[in-house]
Amino acid sequence: MREGREAPILDALDRAIVDGLQGGFPICERPYAEVAKTLGIDEEALIARLQRMLDARVLTRFGPMFQIERMGGSFVLAAMSVPDEDWARVVETVNAFPEVAHNYRRESGCNNGQNSARGARGGGFNMWFVLATETPDGIGVAVDAIETASGLPVFPFPKVKEYFVEMRLEVRRPEVLG
């Protein structure tokens, strides 16, 4: 979804579902029924709303978020500097790897990077993706394979330390939307 594209209209119930269900989904026999009760709707209505928001790409997923590092695997952020004329081919090449969990195009948005090397703000890195692999060795293998397939260098940025991760974001009130 590109920046500036119109956001789907969410009603109050959609917002309550998105805000209330970014974690804590129960592990029990009828979890949807349990959550639906707290929202004052029935199980069937909650399931239908979730399906609709998944179809509309308001939600990208509904389910467990795995921390593969606690299962012996690795997550690593990596970047590439992709020439504009080669963009479509490289997007297709990189996204074809199942190890690429997500991928964003990024551009520098401020003029305060005047001290960055070579005057190229953001180092010229315009493609940023996260690799997720079942073993730590898998990261190097994936990096090499992406370099070979794309013909461009890949720069891994493994985390040295995690200070904070918050995965929940409240739906912004409609009056402040766009």
Partner: peptide
């Protein structure tokens, strides 16, 4: 419990819920 699952629930698309500017 041991953090192999961070959470179970909905993963919103940032753009679709109003966060149209996402800066690293």
């Amino acid at each position: 419990e041991r953090g192999a699952i961070r959470r179970i629930g909905a993963v919103p698309n940032h753009y679709a819920i109003g966060y149209t500017a996402n800066g690293m």
